[in-house]
């Protein structure tokens, strides 16, 4: 592995994010909405109004009443008001899938730019003409999409935590975030998922002509997570700790299989044929 080349490619790709509005704008907007606006609009009104008077909350209330036995049920039941119950449940569980969407989105957008963009701008040829071994090139490209996606997620979580605790403290007089499930989500599930999203983009980019196309197809990666989100709201798939461990483990396994298979198949001739010709 040539660290000089790997570092240079990562640096170049990360710098390129800033110069393309199609990339940095969604990466700026979506995190702001998820980490600041969403908890804000839930928690701040909850300090002044009964949430049940605002809209139809029956589904969620029913869900809260029917929580499976365990730590979460006990904590939720220990709160004296519906508002507290709802806020605690929303910030720690309901919103959790957003923090899967952020890395997925970032990894997809940056990955699409990193691979298909290189092909579209006819610069892949220059990279392949350089004396850089393919594994170095491959890992540099993977990391240049993975690292920003991962750090963006961490940053968003910090902002989210700050926002949640600042706004909810007057109500709870305690820090309600993060719960242990968040740490598993952030450091176990998210990296595996981001890496998987980058891999999917590598595969997509090998087949498409340009960034736009890769970006659109990359959207398909986000869909499964949306399904998970809807599933969770309806109480079908309540995200719990054990489930998160297993989810992360299976994602890592898929990543590993992918790495192994791609590693065996890396071939300059084939890559050139698919990325340049």
């Amino acid at each position: 592995m040539k660290t000089r080349a790997v570092k240079a490619i990562i640096k170049k790709d990360i710098m390129a994010i800033g110069s393309n509005v199609q990339i940095w704008l969604p990466m700026l907007l979506i995190p702001i909405i998820f980490s600041l606006v969403l908890p804000g609009v839930l928690i701040i009104p909850a300090r002044f109004y009964e949430l049940t008077t605002i809209g139809n909350m029956d589904t969620i209330l029913k869900l809260l009443d029917n929580l499976p036995p365990g730590a979460l049920r006990e904590i939720i039941l220990s709160f004296d008001t519906v508002n507290k119950k709802m806020i605690y449940f929303a910030v720690n569980y309901l919103f959790a899938p957003f923090f899967l969407i952020i890395p997925l989105m970032a990894a997809s957008v940056i990955g699409a730019n990193s691979f298909a963009g290189e092909k579209e701008r006819k610069t892949m040829e220059s990279l392949l003409f350089a004396p850089v071994a393919l594994p170095s090139l491959f890992w540099a490209k993977i990391l240049s999409a993975f690292l920003p996606a991962f750090f963006l997620t961490i940053l968003c979580s910090l902002l989210y935590g700050l926002m949640v605790n600042l706004t909810a403290y007057p109500l709870f007089h305690a820090l309600i975030f993060p719960q242990p499930n968040w740490l598993i989500l952030l450091f176990w599930v998210t990296p595996a998922l981001s890496l998987g999203a980058v891999f999917v983009n590598v595969l997509i980019s090998a087949k498409v002509k340009g960034f736009q196309e890769a970006y659109q197809l990359g959207g398909l990666v986000i869909l499964p997570v949306l399904v998970l989100f809807v599933g969770q709201i309806t109480g079908l798939l309540l995200v719990n700790t054990v489930f998160l461990w297993w989810l992360g483990a299976s994602l890592w396994l898929i990543d590993l299989i992918f790495i192994k298979r791609v590693g065996e198949r890396l071939n300059r001739d084939k890559l050139f044929a698919s990325q340049v010709l």
């Binding site: 710098m15 390129a16 110069s19 220059s126 850089v132």
Partner: peptide, 18 residues
Amino acid sequence: GLYENMTALDNLLFFAEL
């Protein structure tokens, strides 16, 4: 095969690393 969103110098510095 140059990067159009980068300056002339940055292009050369990038390839110099490779």
